[in-house]
């Protein structure tokens, strides 16, 4: 029989293991972040070369922008609607619904639309980038590029990064338009606020700075999406399994980094 004294010891041991596990996970995460920063640096350095092959970036903008449009539209409808429902519930009994529009507007333009759009786009695009680069690695296409003195960062990563950085603000503005429309419809259908009251309150305390920061930070998120996808694609091991793993890691890391950057930007700018 196990002596009861061993139970706390065993518990401590388990916690210790968990601690080491967490520590290792943290090391791995920071190692990846370092590599991603290095890749970002290399990409930024090569960005001016973009003007020699603009068509590559334009092609990527089409792909990244158009492919994400439907997804962003659908999520934005629910984000806008949900914001109204949630605000109404939180207000009920305390705050008059005259301020409903103001709260919804602030929430949408500063946080909800930029962050949720970035997360949704990252689930679509950083995985796509990781899978594309990973399968190019598996089929030796990256080696072939090296043999032909074609720099993969310049020809593959720079166009994708530029496209992500340019398309994210566009997507987020689109998302905000859809979300506002959805919020207006929801407010009219499910709350007792009239259209004029709601529209007036939307404009209450509206600062262009909020909108600007909300849109501008998505450029950082676009960079994060492209870089994590590229990094895990380059890192992937041979074969289909490696590609699958790369896409999972890419989307996980992108999500974490988007939230981290969101916090840092809020901390610095606000």
């Amino acid at each position: 029989m196990i002596s009861p004294l061993r139970i706390p010891v065993a518990a401590l041991e388990k916690t210790g293991r968990l601690g080491f596990g967490l520590r290792n996970a943290a090391y791995v995460f920071f190692a990846h972040v370092l590599y991603i920063s290095e890749l970002a640096y290399k990409t930024v350095v090569r960005a001016p070369l973009l003007f020699k092959n603009v068509s590559l970036s334009i092609e990527q903008m089409y792909i990244i922008g158009l492919e994400s449009l439907g997804l962003v539209a659908v999520t934005s409808v629910f984000v806008g609607g949900e914001a109204v429902v949630q605000a109404t519930y939180q207000f009920s009994g305390y705050v008059t619904l005259r301020y409903l529009g103001m709260v919804v507007c602030k929430a949408l333009i500063t946080e909800l639309c930029p962050v949720i759009t970035a997360l949704v786009v990252s689930s679509r695009i950083s995985t796509a980038i990781a899978a594309e680069i990973g399968s190019m690695k598996a089929t030796e296409q990256l080696d072939a590029m090296a043999c032909l003195s074609l720099d993969p960062i310049r020809y593959l990563i720079v166009p994708k990064t530029i496209a992500c950085v340019c398309m994210m603000p566009v997507l987020v503005i689109f998302s905000e338009l859809v979300a506002f429309t959805a919020s207006i419809i929801t407010a009219l259908l499910f709350t007792d606020v009239s259209l004029t009251t709601y529209l007036l309150s939307l404009r209450m305390f509206f600062f262009p700075k909020d909108l600007f920061i909300g849109v501008a930070k998505t450029m950082v998120f676009g960079m994060v999406i492209a870089m994590t996808g590229a990094h895990f694609g380059f890192q992937s091991t041979k074969g289909a399994e490696g590609v699958g793993e790369a896409t999972t890691k890419a989307v996980m890391t992108a999500a974490v980094l988007i939230l981290v950057f969101d916090f840092v930007i809020a901390f610095l700018v606000l």
Binding site: T139, E140, Q141, A144, C147, S149, L150
Partner: peptide
């Protein structure tokens, strides 16, 4: 040295996103 070297890969390693003409024209 890579400027002086060329290689045919065992699996050809063509760029899948480009057509045959573009593959050859790219470099």
């Amino acid at each position: 040295p890579r400027r002086k070297l060329g290689m045919l890969f065992q699996g050809a390693a063509l760029f899948d996103s480009k057509n045959v003409g573009e593959n050859i024209a790219f470099p």
